[in-house]
């Protein structure tokens, strides 16, 4: 095995392990907060509610990711680049994608932290979905377009129908690049979750320790995970270039 491959695989493993631990802790909700291992004992009840709401984003995000991959395949494989449907959808996505993620962060903190009466679960979810959707759709589109035309031609030359070509040829060839895009989206989501928690803690809650700029342990973990995700993403991107 190449050394680069080894590094790549260990990073993937570490990320998975940490994500699993975090997910497991999150799913246990309150005990995670009380244990004070990642969070401090200074947290309040409303803090755990925020935490809960962020945890509930996980299935929604996974759904959004699957949805965006499907949308991208629909756009690239089933619509002509010149059709009005393609044009309209692609333009909307381009607009969404061009919004800096900082704005999503501000939007997120606004809904999650300051507008709690307006900050229904729906608006929370919408913020994250709008963040993830354009990133993964566009990266998946790029991945699909990156599959060499000869692969498609060779598969169609065998008499394959479109669905066979997509499932057995385009998807496997595009897989690493699609995953790279998904990890970028995950990385940004984690970073923004971290931002929301920090802003929350700084505004809503005066820590008893007297440190006004206290940073909860979970934020550090989220940021580390975010960093790992983006590293993983660039490894995946590089992997497609080797093969």
């Amino acid at each position: 095995m190449k050394r680069s491959e080894l590094i790549f695989q260990s990073i993937a493993l570490i990320t998975l392990a940490v994500a699993f631990i975090l997910f497991w802790n999150f799913s246990k909700g309150v005990s995670f907060v009380e244990n004070g291992t990642l969070f401090d004992a200074t947290v309040t009840d409303s803090y755990s509610v925020l935490q809960e709401n962020l945890n509930r984003m996980i299935p929604i995000l996974l759904g959004a990711i699957l949805f965006s991959v499907a949308i991208a395949f629909y756009l690239e494989e089933y619509l002509a680049r010149t059709s009005w449907k393609y044009q309209i959808i692609a333009r909307q996505i381009a607009i969404l994608a061009s919004i800096p993620s900082l704005l999503y962060g501000i939007l997120g903190t606004y809904f999650f932290v300051f507008k709690t009466e307006f900050g229904s679960f729906f608006t929370h979810a919408l913020t994250f979905v709008l963040l993830v959707l354009p990133i993964t759709i566009q990266s998946t589109q790029r991945a699909i377009r990156g599959v060499d035309i000869s692969v498609r031609e060779a598969a169609y030359a065998l008499g394959a129908k479109r669905r066979h070509v997509i499932v057995h040829h385009v998807f496997p060839h595009a897989f690493s690049t699609i995953m790279a895009g998904i990890f970028i989206a995950i990385s940004r989501t984690l970073a923004i979750s971290a931002l929301i928690i920090v802003v929350y803690v700084w505004t809503e809650h005066t820590p008893q320790s007297g440190d006004p700029f206290h940073i909860p342990g979970s934020v550090i973990v989220l940021l580390l995970l975010s960093l790992l995700s983006s590293v993983l993403s660039s490894f995946l991107e590089a992997k497609t270039n080797w093969s």
Partner: peptide, 28 residues
């Protein structure tokens, strides 16, 4: 698709279909 099955095509450079040897041949 039926038309293309009546014609076998071999390209200048082998296009790697990401499947096992068996599945490559069994694909069509």
């Amino acid at each position: 698709h039926g038309l293309r099955r009546r014609i076998g095509m071999v390209l200048p450079l082998p296009v790697g279909l990401p499947l096992s040897i068996y599945d490559n041949v069994a694909f069509a």
